[in-house]
Design a protein around this nucleic acid. Structure first.
Length: 566
DNA sequence: GTACTTAGCGCG
DNA sequence: AAAGCGCGCTAAGTAC
């Protein structure tokens, strides 16, 4: 069954021709059963209200996300040329997530969305997307997998927002107090920062008026004192031998903690023991997720101590080891590199150690920077130096990323394993390239064009790897989500604890960052969860790469705090 | 006052 | 003497 939710001007919806009042939607969804695939314009618009009513959806199809992928995909076969003007499905912004378990006031209605205006027709759009996929022939299977995974990811993203990441404000406060000193009054510097500011001024022989928070003032004082730095970047300061370096680096680090994840952050983003940040599915060109509000994808290691499971609950924390080089080996069909990732016992090695064991490079560190350089387009330093050796040992993988880079340098599109394509370079890029062929083009123009071309080549080189890794992660996430639900509720956890329905006594995802997940689970299910997370990684590998002998080993920890992982 | 850019740094 | 991908966020600084 594939019901489509069609919004009506009066605020109700139509489901397979039947008019349904919004308040009735949760029971209609429940009645349809778990095999139904709910199709809607935007998961963010419909799913928060269902979750607030305690209803989980097993399968969904997100037309907005599907359209964006198909519209850009070089594998998708549109009936008309791809340069057709953008329609409503191209411009639809995602509905903002506002409802939380304790504040479901805006049930199904995102503020600012004018529901009285007739929107684009989801039934027609679904037919269009189905037809485009079907017409894509050989690529149809991959595109279907990508679209299903993207939609499953959208469900998982809303569920993680609904559940929230368990967060102990007093632990966070203790971290801040230990490193910065007690919380100061508004507008004042914490004690440790104040101390460091004095040390910085003394080392620079600068007046008390010098404000270390002002990069301009600070840089001027540094120039005057003859320190020898021409910027305030950490790496540049680290090279220098001057008494100001040590206090300044510490100041910058603590200042960063204070401004990005200090007391103000805590008050803004943590409520009732949960941190909620909105995940923006497909928010990055490569298909990775972005986040909005609170910087969930950049949680510094130092504050992860505050992420603590509820009493009677535990975390299962898992991350995929060397995901990107493994993905590269698989998409390039590089059996040699895949073998390096399997290790001597064939059960999933540290891939960089495997590269050393293959004799390609002498140390793990060189294997790592070399592979990163290959995937990012590095040319200098030790990364550039080992590149030829890696190219000799793993010609298929290196040729694969080189091909992607060449395509980008020519201004062409590249595509991930499942069919997400890169954008084309913009007008400035093309003008710069054209500038190199003008009759009056100087050396500068040629050099600039070359530099732009190379830069876009580095982008496309990385796009195919990062984007395909994001696809693996989506499949992993989708599989984990399904498996966790199948484990069922724990008999030893009560239904009225701090975890909201429908996850009250069930393991559920609470955090995801590119190649890493955190599951919050009743403690008695933690071992079972860990096994499912492992099984899901293997399943994701099979979904993307079939029988190709690549492995995706995880490091998995069962712990009471996120800080205890690794 | 608002809206923008820049520098810097956190994460993967 | 810092090059090589993708982001979000903050404060300072600038433009209007």
């Amino acid at each position: 069954m594939q019901p489509v939710i069609v919004p009506e001007p009066d605020g109700s919806v139509r489901v397979d021709g039947r008019r349904v009042a919004l308040g009735e939607l949760p029971s209609v969804v429940v009645a349809a059963g778990a095999s139904a695939r709910w199709t809607w314009d935007d998961t963010n618009r419909w799913y928060p209200g269902l979750l607030a009513a305690g209803v989980r959806v097993e399968r969904a199809y997100d037309l907005r996300l599907g359209h964006r992928i198909l519209r850009g995909s070089a594998l998708a076969s549109w009936p008309e040329p791809g340069d057709a003007p953008p329609g409503p499905w191209d411009t639809l912004p995602p509905a903002p997530l506002t409802s939380t378990p304790d504040q479901p006031a805006m049930l199904f209605a995102a503020p600012g969305v004018d529901d009285s205006a007739p929107g684009p027709d989801p039934v027609a759009e679904l037919a269009v997307q189905d037809a485009v996929v079907a017409a894509s022939l050989a690529a149809a299977g991959r595109l279907r997998l990508l679209l299903a995974a993207e939609s499953a990811g959208a469900l998982a993203a809303v569920e993680m927002y609904h559940a929230g990441l368990p967060w102990l404000a007093d632990v966070h406060d203790a971290v801040l107090t230990e490193t910065l000193g007690p919380r100061p009054r508004l507008g004042e510097r914490p004690a440790r920062l104040e101390e460091l500011a004095h040390l910085i001024r003394a080392a620079l022989d600068a007046p008390a008026s010098l404000n270390p928070d002002s990069p301009r003032d600070l840089l001027r004082a540094i120039e005057r004192a003859g320190v020898g730095a021409r910027s305030l970047r950490k790496w540049e300061l680290e090279q220098l031998d001057h008494p100001v370096v040590e206090p300044l680096l510490e100041y910058k680090s603590l200042y960063r903690l204070l401004t990005a994840n200090g007391w103000a952050w805590l008050e803004a983003w943590v409520r009732d023991g949960r941190f909620r940040s909105e995940y923006v599915v497909g928010g990055v060109v490569t298909g990775r997720w972005a986040s909005s509000g609170g910087g969930a994808l950049q949680l510094p290691k130092s504050v992860r101590r505050a992420v603590v499971a509820d009493p009677g609950w535990s975390f299962v924390i898992a991350d995929a080891a060397q995901l990107e080089p493994r993905v590269l080996a698989a998409m390039a069909g590089d059996e040699v590199m895949a073998a390096a990732g399997r290790g001597p016992d064939g059960r999933g090695a540290d891939m960089y150690a495997g590269i050393v064991a293959s004799g390609a490079v002498p140390t793990r560190e060189l294997a790592k920077v070399g592979m990163l350089g290959a995937m990012y387009g590095g040319t200098t330093g030790s990364s550039g130096q080992v590149l030829p050796r890696l190219a000799k040992a793993f010609p298929r993988s290196l040729a694969f990323v080189d091909d992607a880079a060449r395509a980008g340098e020519r201004g062409e599109v590249v595509t991930t394993h499942l069919g997400r394509s890169s954008p084309l370079p913009g007008a400035t890029w093309h003008e710069t390239q054209a500038g190199a062929y003008q009759d009056d083009a100087g050396d500068d123009d040629v050099a600039k064009a070359r530099s732009y071309a190379r830069s876009w080549g580095r982008f496309t080189r990385n796009f195919v790897v990062q984007g395909t890794a994001a696809e693996w992660a989506l499949c992993w996430l989708a599989s984990i989500r399904r498996r966790l639900w199948a484990l069922g509720p724990s008999p030893s956890v009560s239904d009225d604890g701090p975890v909201p329905a429908p996850f009250a006594a069930r393991p559920h995802l609470v955090f995801f960052v590119h190649d890493e997940i955190v599951v919050h689970t009743p403690a008695d299910l933690a071992d079972a969860v860990a096994a499912e997370v492992q099984a899901a990684a293997a399943e994701a590998g099979r979904l993307l790469f079939g029988d190709f002998p690549v492995q995706f080993p995880l490091s998995v920890a069962i712990a009471p705090s996120y800080a205890d992982a690794k």
